[in-house]
Structures are given as structure tokens and as C-alpha cells.
Amino acid sequence: MSRDRFDILTLIGLAGVVLVTLFLLLGSGGRDLRLASGPSQATERALQERAQAAFFAETYAPVEELLAVNKPGEALLRLEQIERDLPAEAHTALLRGGILVRQGALVEGIGEYVRAVRSRADYVDTRSPLQRRAEIEQLLATALPVVQSQAQTNPDNQGLNRALRDLHYLQSRLAGGCE
């Protein structure tokens, strides 16, 4: 294949661009130019996770304290207060779910757990510091047989059917998969 002057100049230009790029990349010793403009992704994520954990610990401390002294009703009211400042927060739903189940409002409690997991999957993630897998597994172990048998004997009960669907959702999320 014959090369004219245009081809040769283009080839030289291409080789130059490749060489300069390689020089920049290799010469940087792996340094990322973005370093100059802020922290790394890993740092940002670690910060975010720790800030989130600290924020929840502080915000929900009164609720946890009330639960520790066996005052679930007052804890529930406290959550209502928190909800005014942080509407639709998954952690509120998670704690409320636990209280409602403990108080005997099983269907409503299960619904709150589902709301929590749907908006923050961390609660079923083994890697997350927020995970509550054991608590949700315990809920499934105790509630599923009860709700299943009640739903079978009352097939028209929408609340029970919804609770059964919710429990199956939690079961599926605990089982893993890619989503």
C-alpha cells in the first residue's frame, strides 16, 4: 500500500497523540487528576455511610431509649414527631414496624417493614451497617405461618392478603438476587 505525504503526516500525528497520552498516564504513576478537585469516591461513600449511621443514632436515640424501658406506645408517638421533620424516612418505618408487630398490629407492622425495605435496601444487605436481616428473618419465621393460615381461612380479607404479599416480598429480598 503506497503512502503519500498526507498519510505519513497523519500517522505521525496519531503516533504523537498515542505517545503523549501514554506518557501522561504512565508518568502520572496512577495519580488521578480528579484528586485535585475533591475526595475519592471511596472516601465520599465512607463519609456518607458514617454520617448516616451517626445521624440515625442521634435522631432515633429517644425512640430506642423508650423501647429499652418498654414504652412502645410512647416510642410510636415519638416516631410520629420525627416523621414531621423527616417525612417518609425508611428508618422511621422500620422502627415503627417493629413496634407495631410487638404491639400485636401484625398486618400494619409488616406493611411498615416493607415500606422500609423498599425505600432502603440496606436493611436486607449483609454488607450494610444498617442491616436488620435477623430481625426481618425472625418476623418471617413467626408471622408467615400465622398470616398464611389466616389468609387461607379468610380469602376475602384484603388486609391479610396484602400482608401475605408483603411477607413474600420480604422473603424474596432476603433470598438475594440481582435488583
Binding site: 414504652k71 410512647e74 410510636l76 408517638l77 415519638r78 410520629e80 414527631q81 414531621r84 400485636g104
Partner: peptide, 23 residues
């Protein structure tokens, strides 16, 4: 109590619950 807190009529922090009945 729940509705009054939700509506902002009272604050949960202002009260203490001495006891609550079963549902």
C-alpha cells in the same frame, strides 16, 4: 395523640406516657 402530633397541635416531647393498654 397520634393525630394531634401529626397535625402539629402538640409535641410528643412535651408528654410522658405512664401506661398504654393492649390494642
Amino acid at each position: 395523640l397520634e393525630l394531634m402530633i401529626r397535625d402539629g397541635k402538640i409535641f410528643a416531647d412535651d408528654f410522658t406516657v405512664i401506661g398504654e393498654s393492649p390494642i
